[in-house]
Amino acid sequence: MSDLEQMGVIHGVGLGPGAPDLLSVRADRLVRGARHVAYFRKAGRPGQARRIAEGLLRADAVELPMEYPVTTEIPLSDPRYNECLSAFYAHCTDRLLAVARTGEDVVVLCEGDPFFYGSFMHLHSRLSGIAPVTVVPGIMGMAGAWNATGLPITWGDDVLTVAMATLPEEELVRRIRDTDALVVMKIGRHLPKLRRAVIAAGRADAAWLVEHAAMPGQRVTPLADVDTVTPYFSILLIHGQGRRP
């Protein structure tokens, strides 16, 4: 028997956009049965993934919180940012491997889908080939957001663009102007820049902001009516208006 065959499996489990009843049947089974449960969180906070799983974990579950060393304290352009996070993900990988080498499985709780802008991707790339790893898809946060508006995001041949509000303003203007339907994530303190880009692209009247989609406190507001800094879990939407019967 090979070393891999003797190891426990590390499962990256997508929990969906925020509501516990939006987990898949497979995700629910794995989360409820897990003896070892890992999840990312900001220091001093329980973490969104852990909040979604509240009430699902078995009483004797061993929890492995993985606390980000930085979030916004160091600019993304600063070389120290990548150095710090690279060391962090390497440490998290070692912690998961230590459990898997005992033959025990580990469930890593992931917001949304593990392979869609998620932190688990950085573990997966380090674990592949040295430990058994599986991924359980989850409903993405942006799907929760456009469903919260009660309107389809795309019709017919509409092109959907997903952009980050961290992009330069001129790049945002181009992306917003050149697509049919739009999702913008990672807004927060970038709201003023994003608003200017939406206006410059001539699409201010079509833009919506969804806060805490599929979570307690969900709110759907026309962008024109938003005048405060948005929380982390905010998504901007512009719905496509394409071909339909």
Rank of each mutant, 00 (worst) to 15 (best):
Y89C: 09
H91N: 09
N82Q: 11
S86R: 08
Y68A: 11
G14M: 03
G55D: 05
E104Y: 10
R58W: 10
A98R: 15
L30M: 10
L76C: 06
A53E: 04
D78S: 00
A38F: 07
L85S: 11
P17F: 00
V31H: 03
D113L: 01
A90K: 05
R58Y: 11
G103W: 00
K42Q: 12
D78A: 03
G47E: 00
R95Q: 13
R26L: 11
L96G: 14
R45I: 03
R32N: 07
L57A: 01
S24C: 08
R101P: 02
R45H: 08
R101Q: 07
R95H: 06
R95P: 04
M66D: 00
A43E: 12
E73V: 01
L57R: 05
E83W: 01
M66P: 00
A59I: 14
K42R: 12
R51D: 15
V70K: 04
E54Y: 08
L15M: 07
G112K: 03
S24I: 09
F116C: 03
T102C: 06
E67C: 05
R45P: 10
R45K: 09
A98T: 15
L57C: 09
P69W: 02
A27Q: 02
Y68Q: 10
L85I: 07
C92Y: 02
D21I: 03
P65E: 03
A19Q: 11
G18M: 04
H36I: 09
E73Q: 15
P17Y: 00
F116V: 15
R80W: 02
Y81R: 05
A49G: 08
A98V: 13
R29I: 07
A87R: 11
G33L: 06
F116E: 02
R58K: 13
L30K: 10
E83A: 14
V31R: 03
Y39E: 07
H36D: 12
A90Q: 09
V99H: 03
R58D: 15
A27T: 01
L30C: 07
Y68H: 15
Y39R: 07
Y117R: 00
R35W: 00
V70C: 05
A34S: 02
A87F: 03
R45S: 13
G55N: 06
P17N: 04
V25E: 13
R32V: 09
G16F: 04
A43V: 11
L85A: 12
I74F: 00
P114N: 05
L76E: 08
R35N: 07
G16A: 02
E83R: 14
P46N: 15
V108W: 06
L57V: 12
V106N: 10
P65S: 02
V70H: 00
A100R: 09
Y117F: 14
L96Y: 09
T102H: 03
L76W: 06
L56Y: 11
L23C: 10
A53M: 08
